[in-house]
Write a protein that binds this DNA or RNA. Structure first.
Lengths: 169, 169
DNA sequence: TTTGGCATGTAATCCGTTACATGATTAG
DNA sequence: CTAATCATGTAACGGATTACATGCCAAA
C-alpha cells in the first residue's frame, strides 16, 4: 500500500478497507506492531509529523522494502483450503430440519447480492478515476474475481434452494 | 463426523480429508486435544479398544454432543473475509513485469482444473453409493458449490489472461 | 525385513482478533 | 458542545500449524 502513497497506520487501514477490503483485511492490533517491526528491518521508514500537538507517524516504503515486495510478488501464491462454515452446516444438515439449511442459504444469497452491488459500484468508480492503464487492468481483475465468484455463489444458492424446497414438500 | 460413525482421532482426520477436505481440514495437533476437551465436556465419549497391545480410543458422540451440534447447525453462519494471496499479487502487479501475474494466473488455472477433476470424480462416486436421499442432496450441494466456484475461477483466469496478454504486446 | 499406514500425543510458534486504554481534531 | 473520525498503541486470548516424539501392525 505504501507504494501507492506514504501514510499513517490509521490511513493504511482505511486504504486497505476501501480498495482490497473484500479479500484482505487488517486489524490495528496487527498493523501497528507490524509497522514497528518493518521499520526495524529497514523495509519502511517513518517521518514524525508534529503539526499541532499530535504525533503522527507517516510511513514510506524504502528501497529495500520495495525490493522485498518485488521478490514476494514474484513467488507463486500457494493455494490453501479455506474453511467454509456454510458448507459445513449444509453437509451435516441431515441432523436438523430442512428449513434450517434453506434459511442459511437464503441468507447467504441475500448477503452475496449486497456484496455484489458494492463491487459493481466500485467497478464504476474506477472507470471514472484516471489510473494508468496497467494499474487499471489489475484493479479491474481483482474486482472481476469478486463479481464472478459472487455470481457463481448466487447461482449455487438458487440451484440448491430449488432442490431442497422440492424435497421439503 | 461422529454422527456418521464412531471412530478414532486418526480415522476422523482421514474421514474429514476424504469427504469435506476441499473446504475444511484438521491437523492432529488440533484434533487430539479437541477430543480430550470434548470428552471432559461430555460431548463425546471414548471406548478403549485394547485388541493386540495397542490402545485405540474410539470416540462416539453423546446425547449432549448431538444437542450441541444441533444448536450449532441452527446458528446462521457468519461470513468473514478470507484473505486471497493471488488477488493481492495481482493488485500490486504494477510493481513487477506483466509476465509475473500471467504466470501466477496460469498456474492457478491449472491447479483449479486439477481440483475440479477431483470434485467431479467425487460427484460420480456419491452417485453410485447408496446414501439416503436427504443426505445425498446435502453432499451433492457441497460438491456443487466447489464445482461452480472452480468453474467461475477458471473463467476468471481466462478473462484476465486475455487482457493481460493483449497489454503485454 | 522394511516400508507405509495406523495411532497418539506434546511443545513451540505464529498469526490474528478483540478488548483495553488514551487522547486530539474537526465538522455539524 | 458533542459526536465522529483521526490516531496510536498494548495485552489477553484463541485458533491453528508444524515439528517433535514414539511406537504398533500388516503387507510386500
Amino acid at each position: 500500500m505504501l507504494t501507492l502513497q506514504s501514510m499513517t497506520g490509521y490511513n493504511l487501514r482505511s486504504k486497505i478497507e476501501e480498495t482490497i477490503g473484500y479479500f484482505w483485511q487488517e486489524s490495528f492490533g496487527q498493523l501497528y506492531p507490524a509497522l514497528v517491526r518493518l521499520e526495524k528491518e529497514g523495509l519502511v521508514k517513518s517521518q514524525t509529523d508534529s503539526t499541532g500537538e499530535r504525533t503522527r507517524y507517516v510511513y514510506s516504503i524504502t528501497r529495500q522494502g520495495r525490493a522485498k515486495l518485488h521478490s514476494w510478488l514474484e513467488q507463486s501464491p500457494v493455494h490453501h483450503v479455506e474453511r467454509n462454515e456454510l458448507l459445513m452446516k449444509i453437509f451435516f444438515a441431515t441432523e436438523v430440519d430442512v428449513a434450517t439449511p434453506i434459511a442459511h442459504i437464503s441468507e447467504s444469497r441475500a448477503d452475496a447480492i449486497e456484496r455484489l452491488k458494492v463491487l459493481q459500484n466500485m467497478s464504476l468508480v474506477i472507470n471514472n478515476e484516471l489510473i494508468d492503464k496497467r494499474g487499471y487492468d489489475y484493479y479491474w481483475a481483482t474486482l472481476r474475481n469478486g463479481e464472478l465468484g459472487l455470481e457463481a455463489h448466487i447461482r449455487w444458492c438458487d440451484e440448491v434452494l430449488v432442490r431442497l424446497k422440492a424435497s421439503a414438500l
